[in-house]
Write a protein that binds this DNA or RNA. Structure first.
Lengths: 214, 214
DNA sequence: CCTCACACGTGATGC
DNA sequence: TGCATCACGTGTGAG
């Protein structure tokens, strides 16, 4: 493409020098050189319409482009593209920073419940300390249950537990989470979101199912 | 604008018929018609250079635009802009979905530490139960400190605390978080990420500064 | 009056 | 060969 341009420029220069040498009759020269017959007195130029469409198309694209770019410094064809360029750069930056922020957020979100403990060590730690997984559910009053969960520490496991119970319409109250020795120790009150009563053994089964899944 | 086009066409046709009448010397005619002096046999057109720059500028902008767009279907001027348009749309979509995802993430992330407690009640709860804010820091060994923090429960406050300390190169170990009676009770060990030693009173000041900010 | 930006028609060129 | 694209020079209107 570039060399094509170069060729173009060269051709042009050549033509230009020719023109300057030949003075005012260069056009005739060019015209006579080929293309249309000398005797034809009607108008010529075969690709007039085609070229017109091309220009029209290009202009419309340019307008579409302009309509997409929020900040516009000028109506110039060149500045339209320029603004588009800066806008694209801005968008790219934004995408990058956003995704970065999101990853960072994911990381910290998981750090909260894990505090950066290597999860490979977790199982070993549990063994070493002789800690067994445990799920306990007791009734507090007619609406609330008290639960105690000891599980192996895994990435995001606490968050997943909360989310899963949320999906079953159960919310946590006065939650206590301790992370130590490769485990999560969770104690909390829970209750149904809409005041639903929670059955003890059903809740326990639900908890165990969830824990097995996460 | 359109009528300008029309005018152009008219003028052009007029010129054209003239040209056809005069045959090969139409260009001279046009030249003579006005604009540049009749006797000047050198080339005319004052804004030739200017126009050339304009074109050059536009082309360069177009190339710059093209270099920014990753997917290119064609080298065409029109398709360059077209690709840029689709790319911009794609970027905009991506930004939107990303920010949306991020907000959603923030929401769930805050649910974790809050378990959906209304924060307006938090301050009242603290008062009612006579609980005072507290920050305590003690040395465990040469690398680790033990901290205890009691603060009013606020949306995302625990996450912000973790993040802030992370920024100061401090990480949490064996963290315990209890949410009850409108407060967060946080107890945890902390240590410097690179094995840096942490001074007790400096850490305490840092903690208090952070808590005041969040 | 002059500068700037534009649309136009046109020859040349690649496929 | 025709078809599509291009750069070019130019006239013209707006500021």
């Amino acid at each position: 493409m570039e060399y094509e341009d170069e060729d173009w420029l060269c051709v042009d220069m050549e033509e230009f020098s020719l023109a300057t040498e030949n003075g005012s009759n260069r056009r005739q020269r060019m015209g006579r050189k080929r293309n249309y017959d000398d005797e034809n007195r009607e108008y010529k130029s075969k690709n007039l319409e085609t070229e017109r469409r091309r220009r029209e198309k290009l202009s419309s694209r340019l307008l579409m482009l302009r309509s997409l770019v929020p900040i516009i410094t000028n109506m110039n064809k060149a500045t339209i593209i320029e603004d588009a360029i800066t806008y694209i750069k801005k968008l790219q930056d934004k995408v990058q920073s956003l995704s970065q922020e999101l990853h960072q957020m994911e990381a910290t979100s998981e750090e909260i419940v894990e505090t950066k403990v290597d999860e490979i060590d977790a199982a070993e730690d549990m063994k070493k300390w002789g800690i067994e997984p445990e799920v306990k559910v007791e009734q507090i009053d007619e609406n609330k249950l008290w639960i105690k969960i000891i599980i192996e520490k895994k990435r995001g496991r606490f968050r997943k537990l909360i989310e899963a119970l949320n999906n079953f319409g159960i919310e946590f109250i006065d939650t206590n989470l301790t992370t130590t020795k490769g485990t999560f120790l969770i104690t909390s009150c829970i209750q149904g979101k809409d005041g639903d009563r929670l059955a003890v053994h059903q809740t326990k089964n639900l908890l165990q199912d969830i824990i097995n899944d996460i």
